[in-house]
Each structure stands twice: as structure tokens, then as C-alpha cells.
Nucleic acid binder design. Structure first.
Length: 151
DNA sequence: GCCAACGTTGGC
DNA sequence: GCCAACGTTGGC
């Protein structure tokens, strides 16, 4: 059992959208490190959904991995915004399916997480705070518990 | 909308 | 294989 965090822009697809749809493909990731983490995901793993580039930035809820990594169909689809123009034939990219688990009553904001990290050594190596542009990252069990205590 | 951070591309 | 140019992410 592993824990992860994935970023999404809620104007595109947020926790409310997932709550309605229950299950959705998570595609369009075009960064190697993020992709490699997605390839490690196992069915049943827990994922924080993180809302970025929006009014209230932070963790908005919990998802689970419904289907482990598989070739991302959007990379081969010329009509997709995520079409891989360089190498459409050798699908380099990975998608997973995610299932809705929980929507937090209040977003656990980035601001709050930064505050918590000042005093709680469990959060000292949270990748969210050190790797600003990484959109998929692992979360340790300790970090997960610590963050859940403040939801 | 600005801009810092940083990943990717491509010339050499 | 270096590194400058370029493009994208994401907080503010």
C-alpha cells in the first residue's frame, strides 16, 4: 500500500468533478519523473488530489487507484490536446484510473501545509514543498497521517 | 498577468 | 555531453 499526491487544475478537473463521475482516467501527464511514479502505482493505493493554479490552492480530497498504469491513449490520439507529436507510435506515456474516495469539507491549503512543516519534522521532506513543478509524487505513510490529522 | 523555478530541446 | 534558449508550471 502506497500513498501519492497528484496535482490538477480544478477549473479543468477537480474533486467535485471526480465526486460526480466516481471514476476517471488520469491522463495527459507529460513529465518523465511524474510518469515514472505513476508506473509504480498499484490498485488500491491512496492519492491526495491537489488543486493548483486556482483560488484555493491545496489538498481537496482523497482518491484511490482503480486501475494501475497503462499506455495513455491520449498520447496516440491526434485530436487530443495531449497528443504526442514526437513519438505517437511508441506510446511513452502512462495513464491510471482513479476513483473518488473523499472530498474534504475544507481544502487543506498549501499555506497551512507550509505552516505545519515549520514545526513538524514529519513534513520536512515533503516533495510538494521542495519540488514546485512536480505534478505526481509519493507521500510517506507518516506524511499522509500527519496531513490527515489537519483536515 | 507576472515571474521564478526548472524540465526539455537542440546546436555545437 | 555541455549549455543557452525556450517552454511550461504554478504561486502569488
Amino acid at each position: 500500500m502506497a500513498y501519492w499526491l497528484m496535482k490538477s487544475e480544478p477549473d479543468e478537473f477537480g474533486i467535485d468533478d471526480l465526486a460526480l463521475k466516481k471514476c476517471e482516467r488520469w491522463d495527459g501527464v507529460r513529465n518523465y519523473q511524474a510518469r515514472n511514479f505513476m508506473r509504480e502505482m498499484q490498485e488500491g493505493d491512496f492519492i491526495f488530489m491537489y488543486h493548483s493554479s486556482c483560488k484555493t490552492v491545496g489538498i481537496s480530497g482523497v482518491m484511490t487507484v482503480a486501475r494501475a498504469g497503462y499506455p495513455d491513449p491520449s498520447a496516440e490520439d491526434p485530436s487530443s490536446a495531449y497528443f504526442d507529436k514526437k513519438q505517437p507510435s511508441e506510446n511513452r506515456w502512462t495513464a491510471v484510473d482513479v476513483a473518488f474516495e473523499e472530498r474534504f469539507a475544507k481544502v487543506l491549503t498549501l499555506e497551512k501545509i507550509k505552516q505545519l512543516a515549520v514545526n513538524d519534522p514529519r513534513l520536512s521532506d515533503l516533495m510538494l514543498l521542495s519540488r514546485s513543478r512536480l505534478s505526481v509524487m509519493p507521500i510517506s505513510h507518516e506524511q499522509w497521517q500527519c496531513l490527515m490529522e489537519h483536515v
